[in-house]
């Protein structure tokens, strides 16, 4: 597990209290019962932690992120671009 993946899971656990054992790259966001409010809080923490800007609009969320892997990959790309 990459450091980025690990940190993202830390943030999700902190914001939602979800069981960490359920967090895998192929886990579907909808199945984790993460509310839209929790999700924007998670993105805020991710952006602050990695000093990046994640393009995300709640109105088009289905097109953007379906699984945790989608988020992790997006963050990895943004972190690479930042450096």
């Amino acid at each position: 597990m990459s450091d980025i993946e690990n940190k993202i899971y830390d943030i999700i656990v902190e914001k939602t209290g979800v069981n960490r054992g359920k967090l895998r790259r192929d886990a579907i966001l909808g199945d984790l019962n993460i509310s839209s409010l929790d999700f924007v809080e998670i993105l805020f923490s991710v952006e602050e932690t990695f000093d990046i800007e994640v393009p995300y609009n709640a109105n088009t969320q289905d097109q953007d992120f379906k699984t945790l892997g989608d988020i992790i990959s997006a963050v990895e790309t943004l972190v690479t671009e930042r450096d």
Binding site: V40, Y56, N57, A58, N59, T60
Partner: peptide, 18 residues
Amino acid sequence: LRVVSKDTCRPFCKDRTG
């Protein structure tokens, strides 16, 4: 809050973006 459109306001459209 991630609810604002960067484009324009398209109420009730399928491709509305906020």
